[in-house]
Design a protein around this nucleic acid. Structure first.
Length: 545
RNA sequence: GACCCUAUCAUCUAGUGGUUAGGAUACGGCCCUCUCAAGGCCGGUACACGGGUUCAAGUCCCGUUAGGGUCGCCA
């Protein structure tokens, strides 16, 4: 192609390749250090998979003494949404995935390998595109979207593998004069990669997540520069990950089939491709069929779903970590209180090759354990943060009653195995705490319908008489037993079981009567502790009510 | 249609030629117990199917079936 044509294609001044490469020197890192990134698109939707990928990249990079960075892939101007970059940054921040380099919330950047936003790198892509044209490795294509669509239809009809390849690559062999003519006529064009691949040949690709892959070489002349001059994913990936020094690319396995193309692209640019770890995407069970978690159909595909429902950040991270490296569970068992960043993430332990089902049952179980490991103060803070965002009314209740709420959250919050595990997510808390407050306490006398009214009244008033908030727990309990015995409820479980018909009931019935009066529920945490939290006034009021 | 990947309990998985096929979650039972939760103990449930190779196959090979993914000027 003549310099004249090339100048026509790239009329704007571009940095020279030497200039660019000088700005991106190889990183000086210790032996074995890995440089990894996450590269989300600012579409206004933060996919759960982004966090999944982020956990892997952050851990592997940081545990190897390397670098973790975030790159914003905004080359599709049509899908760009305001505020989307904020959402991305906040999402990673929320899960404590801290990039060493990338975009900050205020729009500034950190790191020496930027810009980290692709739309700001247009000149760089163009410079390399121009170089490929000069070397005869890329060519302008004047086919319209309709032309390409038509081609695909013809290929389908004639049973030919679809795509812009071989004899179907119409613009591949345009003469200089044809190109010039089209350019002069102002015809829109895209830049295509002139593939040298042979589809009949296989290439072996080592994937860190999937193992050895045997793939046909790519022979598609894919678009590398779109009509608006911005690169496609493929081209931007090769250039950015080279310049930014990415050593290991982790991404979803929807990219597996284009990996031969990417390796080819790196080679055409004279570079070595990074290593790939292409993870199976999270799945969901739908009508008995597994399928990819879908942005359109599954609310839980969006990270904000977990914010709204108040899942502890650590719970989600632990759950996803376990899908990445299933030996996490054993590690957690052995190190119950260790920070999760201590867990050594390992490419070799990636087990999810087929696509794991996202399992809320398991997530909930992990979440319960996470919450149980927290102190009451930590739970209070986390619930407050959630409530301030999603339940302002409840947030006010929390701040107005911090001491009471913390005390309530502290009930049976023991060490290790004895701790209470009934909070899965912060969303559960308002209902759990409702009975502590006079305005949301609901009396439910009907729960006592199976007892004689007179017995209930007698027991309640007898207890109200002897109730002393200063009693130790055993004294308190003895009082309950004695009152029960007085009205025909056996105080001794063994005796009761030996001859149940001799009694109206046993001490658990007495406790139930008091529990229902005081909490409005048949089930509650330790009643003694609840009464301590409520205080004498409140307890007596409910007993009389 | 073409290409690629995957296949162990309901779910996530351990397993790299010789295992009573292990764990976790879920489920069921018992114990503990003022209810619930938690905890402890016990239990059932799996190598998709069919052929090979081998003294020996969950593990290796081939096929079938089933699932997933990709074939865009989206990423």
């Amino acid at each position: 192609m003549t310099p004249e044509i090339i100048e026509k294609m790239f009329p704007n001044p571009l940095p020279s390749i030497a200039e660019i490469e000088a700005k991106y020197p190889p990183r000086q890192l210790p032996e074995g250090a890995k440089v990894m990134r996450v590269a989300p698109s600012p579409t206004g939707f933060m996919h759960l998979g982004g966090i999944y990928q982020g956990i892997l990249a952050d851990r592997i990079a940081h545990q190897s003494g390397g670098v973790f960075f975030v790159r914003i892939e905004d080359t599709d101007q049509k899908r760009k949404v305001d505020g989307a970059i904020d959402l991305i940054i906040k999402s990673f921040e929320r899960y404590n995935l801290v990039p060493d380099e990338g975009v900050n919330l205020d729009g500034s950047e950190k790191g020496n390998y930027g810009p980290y936003t692709q739309s700001l790198r247009k000149d760089i892509y163009q410079a390399y595109a121009k170089k490929l044209v000069e070397e005869g490795k890329a060519y302008p294509c004047f086919c319209t979207a309709e032309d390409v669509e038509l081609l695909r239809k013809v290929q389908e009809k004639t049973n030919v593998r679809p795509g812009y390849h071989g004899q179907y690559a119409k613009c591949r062999n345009l003469t200089d004069s044809q190109i010039l003519e089209n350019l002069n006529a102002g015809k829109p064009w895209v830049l295509r990669f002139k593939s040298t691949g042979d589809y009949e040949k296989k290439m072996a690709i080592k994937d860190l997540a999937k193992g050895m892959l045997l793939m046909p070489e790519n022979d598609l002349d894919i678009v590398i520069l779109k009509g608006d001059g911005l690169p496609t994913y493929h081209f931007a990936h090769a250039i950015d990950d080279h310049l930014m020094g990415t050593t290991h690319v982790s991404r979803g396995d929807e990219w597996v089939s284009s990996t031969p193309l990417h390796i080819q692209l790196f080679a055409a640019l004279g570079w070595k491709a990074p290593k790939y770890a292409q993870l199976a995407t999270l799945q969901k069970l739908d009508n008995g069929h597994k399928r990819k978690l879908s942005k359109r159909h599954d609310p839980e595909a969006s990270i904000t779903y977990f914010w709204e429902h108040g899942y502890p950040e650590l719970a989600l991270v632990e759950y996803l970590t376990n899908i990445l490296n299933a030996n996490f569970e054993d590690w957690r068992k052995a190190n119950p209180m260790a920070p999760i960043t201590d867990f050594q993430m390992n490419f070799n332990k990636i087990s999810n090759t087929g696509g794991a089902l996202f399992d809320f049952v398991k997530l909930n179980s992990i979440s319960k354990d996470v919450v149980a490991r927290m102190t009451a103060e930590e739970v209070y803070k986390a619930v407050l943060k959630w409530a301030q965002e999603y339940r302002p009314d409840f947030a006010k209740r929390l701040t107005d009653n911090q001491a009471l709420v913390t005390a309530a959250l502290n009930i049976e919050r023991g060490i290790g195995k004895q701790s209470r595990k009934d909070i899965v997510k912060w969303e559960d808390v308002p209902a759990d705490l409702a009975f502590y407050f006079e305005d949301s306490f609901e009396a439910h006398p009907e729960l006592l319908a199976s007892y004689e009214r007179a017995d209930v009244q007698a027991i309640v008033s007898a207890f109200a008489q002897v109730y002393d908030p200063n009693d130790a727990k055993d004294i308190w309990f003895n009082k309950i037993k004695e009152i029960g015995a007085q009205y025909g409820f056996c105080a001794d479980m063994k005796a009761y079981k030996a001859n149940p018909s001799a009694f109206k009931g046993n001490v658990s019935d007495v406790a139930k009567i008091l529990r229902v009066k005081i909490t409005g529920r048949e089930q509650s945490p330790d009643l003694y502790a609840i009464m301590q939290v409520l205080g004498k006034e409140s307890v007596l009021k409910r007993l009389k009510g």
